[in-house]
Design a protein around this nucleic acid. Sequence first.
RNA 1: GCCGCUAUCGUCCAGGGGUCUAGGACGCCGGAUUCUCAGUCCGGAAACCGGGGUUCGAAUCCCCGUAGCGGUACCA
Length: 471
Amino acid sequence: MSIEKSGLRVRFAPSPTGALHIGGARTALYNWLAARHYGGDLVLRIEDTDLERSTPENVAQILDALRWLELDWDEGPVSQVGRAEDHAAALQKLLDSGAAYRDAATADDVKAWKSEHGADRGYRGTPSEDGSGAIRLRVPDDGDTVVNDLIRGEVRFPNRSYDDFVIARGDGSVLYNFAVAVDDADMGITDVIRGDDHLSNTPKQLLVFEALGIQPPRYAHVPLLHGPDGKKLSKRHGAASVQELRDAGYLPAAIRNYVALLGWGPGDDETLLSTAELIERFRPEDVGRSSAVFDEKKLRWMNGRYMRELPPGEYRESVRSFVEAETVGRPLNEDRFAFGCEIVQEKAQTLQEVWPLIRFLFEPPVQDEKAWRKVMKGDAERVLVAVTEALQAVPAGGEGPNGDGFTIEAVQTALEPLPEKLELGAGKVFQPIRVSITGTTISPGIFESVAALGREETIARIEAARSRLDA
RNA sequence: GCCGCUAUCGUCCAGGGGUCUAGGACGCCGGAUUCUCAGUCCGGAAACCGGGGUUCGAAUCCCCGUAGCGGUACCA
């Protein structure tokens, strides 16, 4: 039970009750940043003493989310349940020293006692004669237990408001506040960085440390993250689990940057911070004290910034799974895919937004009738005739994404003079092309889109639109 | 109920006794980019929870109130 360790040791200790939500992810990130900043160790511990909720699937989900976020750990995952022997040893020690005792009173007994005495008074039990009953830790009546929090400063809790709380059930299975303290002690944790919701429990853990005769770690309680409704973020706020953010097309680096800024700022007005900068500048004591609200709009913006800065190859690979999910069963035209990615990299804010923009390259256009009515009128037919002529005049050759001479430049050279030639606004000329080839009014730049589609398909789609116009 | 935490633009982060006519970012509104959408650029509106103190002076310190949140389990 030695805590002889040089350097900082922090831990992330989620309870596997489901997906990792953004609040848990931030706690993990802060611990990770602290460990990396100070060159310490991060221990991953799974708080699985809640038999019911702790399933292997839930544990796997959390590990999966952490890995996807690219947050690695130096030790673990350690199962809290797996440490039962150590817990039992600590328990016995407290029983032997008299710091803890068995109390025959049942939970109902205590409840009854409390309703009689009011809640401003902690319950104090009496050791049972026969050695049965739950095990409680003795809490002194007088004095305060003070938490010296890195973020909150000194917080005092009057001892008399705490019960002699149960640290183990009658069968010897230990409870959370006891297990945490024993684990943190055994693992030599130097700094506990965790959610604010644990602040009120900290005195109990401190009392356990004291009973054990062990120096407690430093504590830093970070404010909770709230949902848009102002309530503590939880499973109920579905949109905020890490896997959902992944599925929505956010990049891990963007999430790290955004989440780091929820409750913490670098001190100046920088908002775009690389992971290296985050590590360099983050200090747990600089975390703010008030709770923050997760705002997906800002994450989107930030994600767009990260997407634009990706090297083309990485961009393509990030987008790939989102496109493949839409093209199952069909081979993906790699050249087209690559070119399509290039022409939308400046546009999309999430990976999910890419497919709708380049869909027309892989499927026949699905006509948006509203778009058709809006655009395919007036001079549209005349325009399309001229466009076809102009495109047919583009010199053939091996250039361009389709090897047919349709480079962005060649297409631009052919189409750009048309508005003036036809004495029409540019929109009047380009929108009918867009609707013809994509079925919608929304697409990448028109020259880029035509080049991406290629000579044959572009002209065929325009021809199809013209025949519909005739009908 | 009791214990505790928190309180600056809609949201996030600065500012911690005078330099604050309160700064930056997202979002929003307007303009530009005479191809859509998006992006980008430029401009704008937008906040110190309330009341008392302390002080020459308070967004900043103290107290009270209010509100929000957390804890108060033989859950974690």
